[in-house]
């Protein structure tokens, strides 16, 4: 575990329309956050169909993409986030085994 107890996490999940993949990604990240970051994270779901311009800021190539905006450095995770292990490693919540 590399997170420190006082850190506030800011996560942003980019999707394009509430497709099945997008719904699955939202469900997966929520359960991961509740398990590991309860009470110290904010999750912002951005629908690029409604706000296409927002994709440019974080250079989103594919959706769903989860972006860890805080703490720095910026991290990106692509996919439906079903591979919990990869998500935890990608978010730096657990070092590689």
């Amino acid at each position: 575990m590399t997170k420190s107890p006082s850190e506030q996490w800011e996560l942003r999940l980019y999707v394009a329309g509430m497709t099945t993949t997008a719904k699955r990604a939202v469900a997966n990240i929520k359960s991961i956050c509740e398990a590991h970051l309860a009470g110290q994270y904010t999750l912002d779901v951005v629908d690029l169909v409604e706000h296409p311009a927002l994709a440019e800021g974080d250079q989103i190539l594919a959706v769903p993409t989860l972006v860890r905006q805080l703490p720095l450095p910026l991290r990106k995770i692509i996919g439906d986030l079903s591979h919990t292990e990869k998500v935890l490693v990608g978010l730096d919540l657990r070092g590689p085994q």
């Binding site: 439906d80 986030l81 591979h83």
Partner: peptide, 10 residues
Amino acid sequence: FHFGTLAVNE
């Protein structure tokens, strides 16, 4: 390019 970690099972 910073593409992002891939987190898919299936």
